[in-house]
């Protein structure tokens, strides 16, 4: 048995080496760096330098507020929308189901830069289709990029467009794993379709919904692409700057690796804490 294990580990060695160098070491290294003042040469150990700054940094709290705002509004809306899409996709009345599934999943495989460019064009003040549509129904144009609230809304719309279909496919898979005869039994029990959804589908989908929520929470905590590309590096005036963007700005524009590492660990810690809270709240009660 020991020989067999040794052989297995020898086969795994190339992967483990790469894993250790490019995954484990950066995690450890950035943790160490977060306790160092990295804007001096040479770097020096100063535990309160980055962590102390974090506590009092308005830019950090702005990014944290923006990230949490997106988390609290966009994630539930997206999951609810994904649920509606999954229900529609699961309908026996739907024709060309495969086509719809592909269409809903397609945004995930579209290049981020391409989709961001399209969103910028669609929401453009003067020639974007969204404002034209608003105008056509008698509503005023919205300057999506110059005001904070519309910009935040734009980020949420974009993220929802990109990920709702992906979550819908996961929820659909969960729905299809619920045995049909449970619904037949409920039908014979005179339970309406609506009540079947709330009393059977939703409770049985809970583990899948939690999975989607956890994935979305982690994704939102790391949100970078949309505020970077669509609202131009967290604009207007940092109004859509997220923790991911703050990290990038500190690490790769200001080359302040210590502070960026502290932000990174804060993001990871928050994601873990929120996920654990989520799992605790939705745990199965005995």
């Amino acid at each position: 048995m020991r020989n067999r294990n040794a052989t297995a580990y020898r086969f795994l060695t190339p992967y483990l080496l790469i894993f250790a160098i490019f995954w484990v070491w950066p995690i450890i290294s950035s943790f160490i760096i977060s306790f160092q003042a990295t804007r001096t040469v040479p770097w020096r150990f100063a535990p309160s330098f980055n962590w102390g700054r974090l506590i009092g940094d308005p830019a950090f709290f702005n990014a944290l507020k923006n990230t949490l705002l997106i988390l609290v509004i966009q994630v539930p809306v997206m999951i609810a929308l994904a649920m509606v899409m999954a229900v529609l996709l699961n309908s026996p009345l739907l024709k060309a189901r495969g086509l719809y599934r592909f269409a809903f999943f397609a945004p995930v495989v579209v290049g981020e830069v391409a989709y961001s460019a399209v969103f910028r064009l669609m929401f453009s003040l003067d020639f974007g289709i969204v404002n034209k549509l608003l105008n056509s129904i008698g509503l005023p144009k919205i300057d999506w990029f110059s005001n904070v609230t519309p910009a935040m809304a734009l980020i949420m719309i974009a993220v929802t467009w990109r990920w709702a279909g992906y979550n819908a496919i996961i929820l659909l898979a969960g729905m299809q794993s619920i045995p049909e005869d449970v619904y037949e039994a409920a039908t014979l029990d005179r339970v309406s379709k609506l009540k079947q959804f709330f009393y059977i589908t939703l409770p049985l989908l809970k583990p899948v919904i939690v999975f989607c929520l956890v994935l979305s929470i982690i994704g939102t905590m790391q949100l970078f692409t949309e505020p970077f590309l669509i609202t131009e590096r967290g604009g207007p005036g940092g109004g859509t700057e997220t923790l991911g963007l703050l990290l990038y700005r500190q690490g790769f524009r200001s080359l302040n690796f210590g502070y960026a590492s502290a932000v990174a660990y804060t993001m990871a810690g928050l994601a873990i804490a929120i996920t654990l809270l989520q799992l605790w709240l939705t745990r199965e009660k005995q």
């Binding site: 039994a185 005179r190 809970k206």
Partner: peptide
Amino acid sequence: MVFQSYALYPHMSVEQNLSFGLRM
């Protein structure tokens, strides 16, 4: 109807399984 796979509501207790239809 009694189904081959029982078709019980897995997230409900026996009592809830029995009373579900009537309650709804």
